[in-house]
Design a protein around this nucleic acid. Structure first.
Lengths: 338, 338
DNA sequence: TCAAATTGCTAAAATGTTTAAACCAATTAT
DNA sequence: ATAATTGGTTTAAACATTTTAGCAATTTGA
C-alpha cells in the first residue's frame, strides 16, 4: 500500500479542483457540470483510478467483506462450500476473507478475533472438531455482527444455520440397501462425539428397525477412513461375519472397503452392496461407481451466504433465526444395484 | 461494521482522557504514567477492545493482507497450496483474501482489480487456463504492488515465481515408463498456452528422444480431464493405434484412461502402463494404484508466501526476481510396474 | 535562583473518501 | 429594490487510528 495507486486527491490536485468535486463527479452527482465530470472521468480512466476500498470501509463503517471460518480447505466438501460462498458474495460485491481453523479450538478463537478486528460485515462458521467452549461466538453476537453457521453448528446457539439432513440421508441410504433385498447390512461409523457421526448412525438404525431387521453389534464398526476400512473388512472376513451390504460414513471409507473386498475376489455389488456418504467426486472414479449421498457443498455455500447477506443488508438483527436444512439426495450408482 | 465494537474514542470518553493518550497507553509508550496505562488496559480488556484494522490500514498505508488468485479451489492441489499460504501468512500476522478465477480471464481481471482496490500488500497468482493477455499483471507492477506467481506463471514476465520442475518431472515419469520396457508411449497433454502444458509435453518428448524412440503424432492428444480422456481412449481403440504406455498431464485424465481401458478388458499395467501427474490423493484409490508425480502443493504455498512476504517487508522492489523450482518426485505405484 | 530538563498529558494533522452545509455570483420572482 | 432561486463549486466534519509538536507543571542542575 505504500504503492503508487492514485487517489481522489491526486486527481483533484491535477485538475485544480477540490477532492469533493472529484468524488461527486465520479458519482455522477447532478450538482456537477458536465464539463467537470468529463474531465474527471477522463483523468480517472487514463490514470487508472481505483477507489480505495479501505478508506471507503472506514467511512461507511461497512467493509463489504465477509469472513469465513472453515475447518480444513483440503476437503472436497469444504472447498466446494467455499466455491459457493465465493460466487454469491462476489455477485453481491462482497469480498471474502477465509480462515482455516485446522480443526483447532485455539486457532478458531484467533480467527474470529482477526475477523472482528477487520470489521467484516458478517461471519460464516463451521466449528472445529475440538471446539467445546462457545464463548467466542457469544462475543460475536454481543457485538451484533451477523453470524451464520454451516454444516457443523453449535447446539442450542441462537443463530442462522444451514445444515444437511444427515439422519434422513443415512436413513434413505440404508433403506435403499434394504429395498435391494439386503438384510445383513453393516455400518462403518464416524466418531460419535461429532453430531454427524451420531446422526448418520441413527439414520442407519432407524431404517433397520423400521424394516424389522435386528442389528447385530458386530455390524457396527467405528471406521472413517480408507485404512481403517481396510482393516475392518479384513477383520470381518477373518471372523466370518456374514454381511451383504455396507453403509459407510464417508466415501473414502466405502472405497477402502470396496477395494479390500475386490482384492479377495468378492464381487461388488453382487455379493455385497455398498453405499458411501460423499466427500466429493471420488464416487465417479471407482469401479463400479459408488452409490453415495450428495451433500451439495456448493449449494450449502450459496444458501449460507444468501442468508448472511440478507442479515447484513437488513441492518439490525432481529432474533428470529432461520435454520435451513438441505436435503442430501442419494445418487445411485453401480456399487449398490445389480 | 455498523456494529457496537468499541473504539479508542469510547475508552477515552469513558476515562475522560484524549484518544491519543489511550493509543499510547495501549502501546506502552513511556510518556504515559503507569496509573493511566493500568486504567486504559483494564477498560480495554473488560470492554473487549479490538483495534480497528481498517483504520489502521488507512493510516499505515499497509493492510497486512495478501491477496491470492487461484484458478479453482476444488482441486486438491490448489487447496493444499492455500493451506500452505494460510499457515505462513497467519504466522506473520497477515490476512489472506482469496479470489477464484474459475479459469476465466474476465474474472481474473476483476479479481485483480478488487485486490488492488482493497490495497492488499502483495498478490499471489496462478493464472487461469484462459488467460492469454497479461496487461492486468503489468498494471500491478506499475503500481509497485509485489506479485509472486505460483505454479502457472506468465512466460517472460519479470516477477518472483515458484514452480515445479514440470519438465524434469515429466521427463522422469516418461523415462520410468521406458525403463519398464515400454516403447509406444502416448501423451495426453494439457492446453499448450499454459506453460505447464508445454513443459510436461516437452519432458515427455525429451525422454522419448533420448531413448531414441520416434514419437508418432497420433500418440499426442490434447486431453486434460476425465471425460476427454475417455473419448480419446475410445478413439485410440477405434483407430487401432497401438500403445503400451501412457503419460497423462494430470491424475484425473490418467484415471479416465485407466477406466476406459479396463472396461474394454485391457489389463493395467500388463498391457498398458500408466503414469499421471498429481492432483492430490486420488492416486491411492484406484485399482491398481496410480503412479504419479507428487507436486507438493502445501510446500509451494509456503515457499510462495515466504517469497512474497520477503518482498513486502523489504519495502522497495528491486528488479532481481527469484525463481524457485520445487522438484516434484515420482511416486511409483501399481499402474506402471508389473 | 533561574534556566533547563523531565513528566504526563492534549491538540492537530494525516491516511482517502463521502456528504451536509456553506458560499458566491448571477439570475429571477415578488 | 429586496428576496429567493439556481448552478457549480468549496469547506468542514466524520470514520479510527497514529504521530508530531507542543504545553503546562514539576524537578533538576549549577
Amino acid at each position: 500500500m505504500k504503492s503508487g495507486l492514485i487517489t481522489i486527491k491526486d486527481i483533484a490536485r491535477e485538475l485544480k479542483i477540490s477532492p469533493s468535486t472529484v468524488s461527486r463527479a465520479l458519482k455522477n452527482h447532478p450538482d456537477i457540470s458536465e464539463e467537470t465530470k468529463k474531465a474527471v472521468n477522463e483523468l480517472a480512466r487514463i490514470s487508472n483510478y481505483q477507489p480505495n476500498a479501505v478508506a471507503l470501509s472506514l467511512k461507511q463503517r461497512r467493509s463489504n467483506t465477509i469472513g469465513v471460518i472453515i475447518p480444513e480447505i483440503v476437503h472436497y466438501f469444504f472447498s466446494s462450500v467455499i466455491s459457493g460462498i465465493e460466487d454469491v458474495a462476489y455477485d453481491a460485491g462482497f469480498n471474502v476473507i477465509i480462515c482455516q481453523s485446522n480443526e483447532k479450538y485455539d486457532r478458531e478463537v484467533v480467527n474470529l478475533r482477526t475477523l472482528l478486528a477487520n470489521r467484516v460485515d458478517g461471519i460464516l462458521v463451521s466449528i472445529s472438531k475440538e471446539t467445546q467452549n462457545f464463548d467466542h461466538f457469544y462475543k460475536v453476537r454481543e457485538n451484533e455482527v451477523p453470524l451464520v453457521f454451516y454444516d457443523r453448528v453449535v447446539p442450542g446457539f441462537d443463530a442462522d444455520q444451514v445444515i444437511v439432513d444427515d439422519l434422513e440421508a443415512a436413513y434413505r441410504a440404508t433403506q435403499h440397501l434394504i429395498e435391494g433385498g439386503r438384510k445383513k447390512i453393516a455400518h462403518f461409523a464416524g466418531p460419535q462425539n461429532l453430531l454427524i457421526g451420531q446422526l448418520r448412525k441413527e439414520g442407519y438404525l432407524k431404517a433397520m428397525h423400521e424394516a424389522g431387521i435386528e442389528v447385530r453389534n458386530e455390524w457396527i464398526v467405528e471406521a472413517d477412513n480408507f485404512e481403517k476400512a481396510r482393516i475392518a473388512i479384513l477383520n470381518i472376513l477373518e471372523e466370518k461375519i456374514s454381511i451383504d451390504g455396507l453403509f459407510a460414513v464417508n466415501d473414502l471409507t466405502a472405497i477402502g472397503a470396496m477395494h479390500t473386498f475386490q482384492k479377495r475376489g468378492i464381487k461388488i455389488p453382487d455379493q455385497i452392496a455398498i453405499v458411501g456418504f460423499s466427500d466429493g467426486h471420488l464416487s465417479g472414479i471407482t469401479d463400479p461407481a459408488l452409490t453415495s449421498v450428495d451433500q451439495h457443498g456448493y449449494e450449502m455455500g450459496t444458501v449460507a451466504t444468501e442468508l448472511l447477506l440478507k442479515r447484513i443488508l437488513a441492518g439490525k438483527t432481529d432474533h428470529l433465526y432461520e435454520i435451513k436444512v438441505l436435503n442430501a439426495n442419494l445418487v445411485i450408482r453401480g456399487s449398490s444395484v445389480v
